[in-house]
Every structure is written in structure tokens, then in C-alpha cells.
């Protein structure tokens, strides 16, 4: 009876757009759902450091090198921030990292694609951060207070990344033939995977229904994807590049673009392990973590000794 009351009170709050805070009562499934989503988001930020980090040593100007390094650093900062957000739900960072490393937690599948050229740094900033923003703007209204507040803060930096990425693509598109070709190739490789970032069609999505009821998610995968398609089309045109979707057509009646179908086979193949970098990404994380173990131990031991000395 008490449980039912609490359920009802909880749902009333949600319906009244009152944020849920860490100390509030919440259904176990809500807590689990949030932990899954926020930790996955944190892991995506951290694993996302790898594909772009791949170009830090080769950035073709000092200005770009600094911008890229600062961007990858920001992503790490987002990861940290989101790990602490998830920790408010009663899970530790260590548990989350273990789950990432043993494969039970996921990260955004886009990062299983390889960064093959310098232009990929631009394409990722523009398209991948761009898609993330569309999602995160919507999540600023999510029902869990700490998550909503982290989205507000993170979104500001993501917009900055997106502008810088687009500016990089613009420079290449206005550059030599080789640079333009590099930009086009990169757009071709990253356009579709960034559409896939919004997840399967609403009809196929496993977590959507309860997430919508609890207002963890505020808009559906397909609605968000449509926004992204609509905002990206004129950006591609301004770059003077070919749109990778040959079926893209403005629909006057709907006031939005009609677009070609996503290759869902590829989506599932990459998620389930057939991307070029799936194993590499997780293994890299494991290796760096293992190699750092003695450093973390030294730090803990030093802290301990200092404490016992002070006592």
C-alpha cells in the first residue's frame, strides 16, 4: 500500500514537471534505467576520446592541435561529470568502469568507426557532437534533476565543439581539391552513422516506452533524428559538398525532409561487434587502466601514509 502511494506520488511529480532529486523515493526500475543511460553516456564521452585523440599528434597546425586537445579534454571532463551524476544514484565509478570493460555496459556505437583522415576530426565535431546536442537539448528537460543539470552544462561545450568541427570542414571545403575530397569522403563515412546515433526506430526501441512515461526521455528517437536531418541538410549545402543521402527531398507539406532508409543491418552489426574498432576501443581502455594501476596504488599509499602521520 505504501509502495503504491509512493509510486503514485512519484508519477504525480513527474507529470507536474517537478524534478526528481537523489534523496527522493524512486522506483527501482527508474533508478536502473537512469544508471544505464547516464553511465552509457559517460562511457561514450570517455571512449569518444580515442577516435579523435588518434589525431592529436598529427594535427596539421598548432592552432588545430590546441583546439583538438582541448576538445578531447572537454569530453573527458563530460565523462567525469556524468560519472558523478550517476554516482548520485548509488553506483560507484569503479563499478561502472568494470561494466564498460567486461562489456555489460555500452557506449555510443559511433565510436566503433575508425578515424581515417584529418577531416574525420571535423566530421565528428560537426556531425557526432551535433547529433549529441540534439539529443542533449531534449535531455535538459529530463526528469532526474542532476542529469538535467549536467546536460545544461555539457550542451554549452558541445555546441562549441560543433562549431569548431564545422569550421574545420568549411576550411577543407574551401581549400585545395585534395582537401575538399577529404572532407567529402569523411562526410560520406560519418553521415549515416551519426543518424544511427539516435537509435532504432521508435517501433523497435526496447527502452522507449517507460523512458517516455517517466520523462527520462522527452522526445522519440525518430523525432530527434528528423531534427538532425533537417538542420544538417543546409549545412552540407553551404559547404558545397554532395549530400550522402541521394533520396533526400524537401517535403513541403510536412515542412521537413524526407530521407532514405538507414542501413539497419550495419547498425546492428557494428553494435554487436563487427565495427572496425569495437575490440580496440575497449582494449585500449583496459590497457591504459591496467598500466595506470601502479600509479593509483602509489597515490593511495602516499595518501594513507600522510594520514597516519598526521594522526
Amino acid at each position: 500500500m505504501v509502495e503504491i502511494d509512493q509510486q503514485q506520488k512519484f508519477q504525480n511529480k513527474i507529470d507536474a514537471e517537478i524534478k526528481i532529486e537523489p534523496k527522493d523515493w524512486m522506483p527501482e526500475a527508474y533508478r536502473k534505467n537512469l544508471i544505464r543511460q547516464i553511465s552509457q553516456h559517460a562511457h561514450s564521452e570517455v571512449i569518444g576520446m580515442q577516435p579523435e585523440g588518434n589525431w592529436i599528434t598529427r594535427a596539421p597546425s598548432l592552432r588545430r592541435k590546441a583546439i583538438l586537445l582541448a576538445k578531447v579534454q572537454d569530453e573527458g571532463g563530460h565523462g567525469l561529470y556524468l560519472y558523478s551524476t550517476a554516482e548520485t544514484l548509488g553506483i560507484t565509478r569503479e563499478e561502472m568502469i568494470n561494466a564498460l570493460q567486461d562489456g555489460s555496459a555500452r557506449y555510443a556505437s559511433i565510436f566503433n568507426y575508425p578515424t581515417q583522415t584529418w577531416a574525420d576530426v571535423g566530421a565528428i565535431g560537426w556531425l557526432v557532437d551535433g547529433a549529441a546536442i540534439v539529443n542533449q537539448i531534449s535531455l535538459q528537460r529530463t526528469s532526474y534533476g542532476p542529469y538535467s543539470r549536467s546536460m545544461v552544462r555539457i550542451c554549452k561545450e558541445e555546441s562549441f565543439h560543433q562549431r569548431q568541427g564545422y569550421e574545420l570542414m568549411l576550411t577543407l571545403s574551401r581549400g585545395s581539391e585534395a582537401q575538399k575530397a577529404m572532407a567529402q569522403d569523411s562526410l560520406n563515412r560519418f553521415y549515416w552513422p551519426s543518424l544511427m546515433m539516435f537509435g532504432p526506430h521508435d517501433t523497435e526501441s526496447a527502452h522507449s516506452a517507460s523512458s517516455m512515461k517517466w520523462k527520462v526521455k522527452r522526445e522519440t528517437n525518430d523525432d530527434l533524428r528528423q531534427k538532425f536531418i533537417d538542420q544538417t541538410a543546409p549545412q552540407i549545402e553551404f559547404l558545397g559538398l554532395q549530400h550522402p543521402d541521394k533520396d533526400l527531398k524537401w517535403n513541403d507539406e510536412k515542412g521537413q525532409f524526407d530521407s532514405g532508409e538507414i542501413n539497419w543491418d550495419e547498425f546492428w552489426r557494428v553494435i554487436n561487434g563487427d565495427g572496425h574498432c569495437n575490440r580496440q576501443r575497449v582494449q585500449h581502455h583496459i590497457n591504459a587502466h591496467k598500466e595506470g594501476a601502479w600509479v593509483r596504488e602509489a597515490m593511495a599509499s602516499y595518501q594513507q601514509k600522510k594520514k597516519s602521520k598526521a594522526a
Partner: peptide, 16 residues
């Protein structure tokens, strides 16, 4: 070169 290779995330940021 340490960025994404550091012993823990805070150090990735500090070294960067």
C-alpha cells in the same frame, strides 16, 4: 601523447 592514456581520467585532463 598522454591524453586518453593516463592512469585515471582526472590525470588525462590535468596532463592535457
Amino acid at each position: 601523447e598522454w591524453c586518453r592514456n593516463a592512469p585515471f581520467l582526472e590525470e588525462d585532463l590535468a596532463l592535457s
